[in-house]
Write a protein that binds this DNA or RNA. Structure first.
Lengths: 210, 210
DNA sequence: TCTAACTTGTGAATCAATTCACAAGCTCCC
DNA sequence: GGGAGCTTGTGAATTGATTCACAAGTTAGA
């Protein structure tokens, strides 16, 4: 299969969340134009995105909401429940552990790890915090498919190396640092300071009147 | 000035954080090749990114670390302190309110708002939670330049409309929904479920051997 | 002063993503 | 059955981003 751009995958997520929303309201049919309007893009873009995976619509009619939603779930790999571990039981880790948006989309926070003895054994987001010394063993045992990192920047690469060594293939990092992984491991980084800097850049460099 | 791509701005943030890191270690000079290696890109990309804003290096020599850092701070608008309000005093809002990465880069969390009477008046991340009914007035009074939204998806657009009406030009949203703003308002959205879906897509569609 | 070894800055070329534009398919209604 | 009115799917064209490749500037050392 041809390589799919990250931007395309992001849009598929957006389309899916709209399909679920309008599906819940009982709407059975939609069009690329509807999806484009709701998702902030163009109808041609919607159709091109979908065309990478097949043709799911009917000419003249549009798309069946439940059918397209099911196909997108399949494409995005949301058919099964994914087990996630959160590494770092600080404020952000605890917030994520009980973030409803995860469970709503089929992710199960099955473990939380920290290195701080004061936190180990305590409850964080409904899960007991485990000793990070057990992380590698648990990952190697297949307990998780995805790791979410909410640790300080200076520890992040070491933890990446640990979970990669144990065989994990997908990591979402909130550590504000650049991380490296082997090519067969997918890494996404969310850097909140960087997002804010995108805003200050815009505030600073915007034309006064436009 | 020519329009600058968002990807370029993101990379400038990365370059800056490396310059600060190596600057703190006493390194005075660096090259586009160093920055590329650390930032996961190519030296040509680094030079092209910088070329949009001027020429900051010396041929044959490279870049002065403190000088380039200062120019990047200026470009990214990090010369002044920015006042941020957090709307939504839930788990994620509270975690962000005391997130060290923000203050380290010159952002001041100057207010936290919520609509829940049980939270108003309580302390969240070192700031007293205010009634969201006062948000519009406070924004209009110029108390904040940036709003961070950590509210449920169903309330997010209404709050965007409120702060935009009050004159705010920069919003960072963590609500898992598509939001719309006038063209003179910059909006960035971080959607954690969408990031995870990018990972599950990769896990599902990856070639078994490559 | 001259050469060797670097590294920048930047047009040109390539590669990637988006948009255009239209043939083809579907439904409804006369 | 046939025409009108939709909407998809997709090559072609366009727009945008990245990479290439090299002239020009700088330093160090002989």
């Amino acid at each position: 299969m041809k390589r799919i751009a990250e931007s395309t995958v992001r849009r598929l997520s957006i389309y899916l969340s709209f399909l679920e929303e309008i599906g819940a309201r009982g709407i059975l049919t939609t069009s690329s134009d509807d999806l484009a309007r709701l998702g902030g893009t163009t109808s041609a873009q919607v159709r091109k995105d979908l065309s990478f995976f097949g043709s799911f619509g009917k000419r003249g009619l549009g798309y069946s909401v439940p059918e397209l939603a099911a196909r997108l779930k399949e494409i995005l790999g949301l058919g099964t429940q994914w087990r996630v571990c959160i590494v770092g039981a600080g404020k952000i880790g605890a917030a994520l552990a009980r973030y409803a948006g995860f469970t709503a989309r089929g992710f199960l926070v099955a473990g939380v790890y920290d290195s701080d003895p004061a936190k180990i054994g305590k409850n964080s987001g409904g899960v007991t915090v485990k000793d990070i010394a057990h992380l590698e063993r648990d990952v190697a045992a297949g307990k998780y498919q995805i790791a979410v990192l909410t640790v300080p920047a200076e520890n992040a690469q070491q933890i990446v190396d640990t979970v990669v060594r144990a065989g994990l293939k997908a990591i979402l990092s909130f550590a504000p640092t650049q991380l490296t992984t082997p090519p067969d491991v997918t890494l996404r980084t969310v850097n909140m300071a960087m997002e804010l800097e995108g805003l200050t850049f815009a505030l600073t460099n915007r034309e006064p009147h436009s």
